[in-house]
Design a protein around this nucleic acid. Structure first.
Lengths: 124, 124
DNA sequence: TTGACATATTCCAATATGGGCATATGATCC
DNA sequence: GGATCATATGCCCATATTGGAATATGTCAA
């Protein structure tokens, strides 16, 4: 009873198979059977995963005769991308990043893409 | 027994409180007590969340006397950012389409028959 | 209609998760 | 040493989640 059951995209995406499904459905819409075949999952399992994804609008469905065509709704992934992107400023001051950038700068044209990293220091 | 228990960052991050903790610890390292106070969570609960986060390297710890100073390891968030970023091209397209349709609707009949490209009928 | 096909749902068992509470560990100070 | 602060862990309970198998629903074809 910790939260509404499966009510957000973060939870839906936590499952590796659901991520695989989203990857698979990103390029083009596909019937369920294609997912079953491509990812080698049991059909009921795929249907269940698709339901979870549908409930948070990560996929959209369309009926085509007796088949259901699913596709990824990439827009629903944006909030996650934005959340994680908020940490971007912190990870580019990691040591190995600095080193990698230094090497890249060194190797490439020294025409000016160089910026000093943010010397932000916050203890409290 | 669906997957290794809490073995990846996606699962760890699915919990809203853990995201809050990561946000809080991104700026500076903090002792556990600060998290308890700031997020108004029970102390054992915080410790447990921190453990989950530590196990997937989303936070790092350092001992300072009798306190433990935690901080977010932003680098561990990058894989998620990159995964979600792979859908970027699709949501650009989505935005473009929405914008285009909005403009079209605006231009033609602002009260009248626009056609939904996706007659949504779900629920059961 | 019946039958075949595609997908969804239900039931079940196993397991994972989170909260609350009590308690254990670890470190400092006397 | 003992007392105390800061944090971690163990236990119990309620709920969530997943897979598997069986079955139900919906659609097409004849």
């Amino acid at each position: 009873m910790t939260r509404a059951p499966g009510s957000d995209a973060f939870h839906a995406v936590a499952e590796p198979r659901r991520r695989a499904i989203l990857d698979f459905l990103a390029v083009a819409e596909r019937p369920v059977g294609d997912i079953v075949t491509a990812l080698r999952l049991a059909q009921p399992s795929v249907s269940k995963h698709l339901r979870v994804l549908r409930e948070v609008d990560l996929v959209r469905v369309r009926r085509d005769g007796r088949r259901m065509l699913y596709r990824t709704n990439a827009d629903a992934i944006r909030p996650m991308h934005e959340w994680s992107g908020a940490f971007e400023r912190y990870w580019h001051q990691q040591l190995h990043r600095i080193k990698a950038r230094a090497e890249a700068t060194f190797r490439s044209a020294p025409g000016g893409g160089d910026q000093p990293d943010k010397p932000k220091k916050s203890s409290r």
